[in-house]
Every structure is written in structure tokens, then in C-alpha cells.
Design a protein around this nucleic acid. Structure first.
Lengths: 116, 116
DNA sequence: ATAGTAGGGTTACACGTGTAGACATATATC
DNA sequence: GATATATGTCTACACGTGTAACCCTACTAT
């Protein structure tokens, strides 16, 4: 029973910091981001409520936040959503479009094949 | 000056019908979707306001709606957004992740190369 | 000890999104 | 022409999102 991933654009900035640092106090996050402290706290609270982030009190009134959803979980979820929404659920369609539109070169693809 | 694409999940259902039919009256859209007529009208109105959809009155009180944003525009936009949000703007990163996670086979990739 | 500061908690507010009821009117049917 | 039906317009409302002010309290420096 894996949890549904629900991370908004604003919240994502916080998650990125957490993924980067593995875990962080709200001050560390505050320093890493250009965000009002209240705003940050609200977003953190929402992330906790949604189960995307956990926390523990390290000393009184100082909390350490831990991502409960990995960057990979997020990426997978986003990728799958896009495939569903824009490519009728077909990964092949997406790949084709992707390679065409993002100007992936033959060399890059061949390189990729080597590493498969 | 291309317009910003802004289509929500609910609105996307309507766009899909319009892309499919090329253009459609609201009744045609209504029949194609399992949606309350008022809800549908609201969504259509919002799409028009945002410039995603245009319309013309064909007879009194009957309107024909035309997509002003193509499926390709939407797909491009979505793909780019995902690359930005989840892959630090790197198409290569996304491709790698994609091929790995979506179990794209060597054959499929080779096929793709042929058609480049 | 007193005053300043950092961090946390509470509340708010505008805007977007999903959904739909209520009402009006044009067209169709008897 | 009266009534039913289809379609459009207006209004609403709960929830999510981005942003932040205000207040409180624990720690810090003088």
C-alpha cells in the first residue's frame, strides 16, 4: 500500500533540499531557499500532513525533517503521470516523441544501448 | 509570442475530445464525456478565457469549439515541464531514467535509431 | 535579569480547480 | 400556441495552493 505522491511546485523546492541534504532542520531549509519563513513552515506542515515528510524533535523546539518519499519515487510518479496524461499510457509513444523533439543524437542512443 | 499553456486535468478531457474531432459543438463534447452539462460548460468557458479554445456561433445558441492549442503543443509543454521539474532541465537524464525504468528494450532503441 | 532574536504555531486571504444547481430561453412536438 | 426539451448563463461552494502577517516562547547576549 504505497502512498499517493502529492507534491506541489512550491513544496517541491523543499523536497529538493531534503533530498539533497538527506535530512534537515527547518533553518537549514530556510537558508537554502529564498522563501519567507512562515511560508516555508506552512509548506513543511502540509508536506508532513500528506505524509511526504517526517520529522523528529532533536532538541526542544528544533525539528529535523526527513523525506519519506524518495526522489526516485517522485520521478517515477511524474513520469508515469505524464505517460498517462499525454501519451495514452504508452511508454513507446513517449520515447519516440522524446527522442524526436529533444534532438537526442544517434550517438547518445548508441551509448545508451551499450549500457543496457 | 506563444501563449502559455494552462490546461488542468479536467480540462484536458475536453481538449482530448477536441483534438480527436478537430472541432466540436458542446453537445458533441457532452456526448463524448461523462460529465454534467454545467460542469462541462464551466470548463469550456475557462478554456476559452485562457485562450486554449476558440469558438464560433454556427446557428443561434449553438457554438462550435476549436482547439487553439494543438496536442503537440501540449505534449511539448508537458515534456519540458517534467524535464525542468524532475531532471534539472537535462533531457539526457530524463532519457536515461526513462529507458531504465520503463524497460525499453535494446531492440526498441535500435529500431528508433534506424528511423532517426 | 532584561531585552533581543530565532524558531514555531495560528490564522488569513486571494486565486485556481472540480463540480454542479438554478434559472432563462430557444427550438421541437403535439 | 402550449408544453416539453435542449442548451446556454449565472452563481456557488468546498478544497487545494502560494504566500505571509501576527503572535508566542525558548534561548542568547549584555
Amino acid at each position: 500500500m504505497k502512498k499517493k505522491i502529492s507534491i506541489t511546485d512550491s513544496e517541491l523546492e523543499i523536497m529538493k533540499v531534503l533530498w539533497e541534504l538527506e535530512e534537515a532542520t527547518s533553518s537549514e531549509i530556510f537558508e537554502a531557499l529564498d522563501k519567507n519563513r512562515s511560508t516555508l513552515k506552512t509548506l513543511l506542515l502540509r508536506l508532513v500532513q500528506k505524509g511526504m515528510v517526517g520529522y523528529e524533535e532533536i532538541t526542544s523546539r528544533i525539528y529535523r525533517y526527513i523525506p519519506l518519499v524518495s526522489r526516485n519515487d517522485y520521478i517515477s510518479y511524474s513520469r508515469k503521470s505524464l505517460i498517462e496524461k499525454a501519451f495514452d499510457g504508452s511508454a513507446q509513444k513517449m520515447l519516440l516523441n522524446f527522442v524526436k523533439e529533444e534532438k537526442i543524437t544517434k550517438e547518445e542512443l548508441e551509448n545508451l544501448i551499450k549500457n543496457l
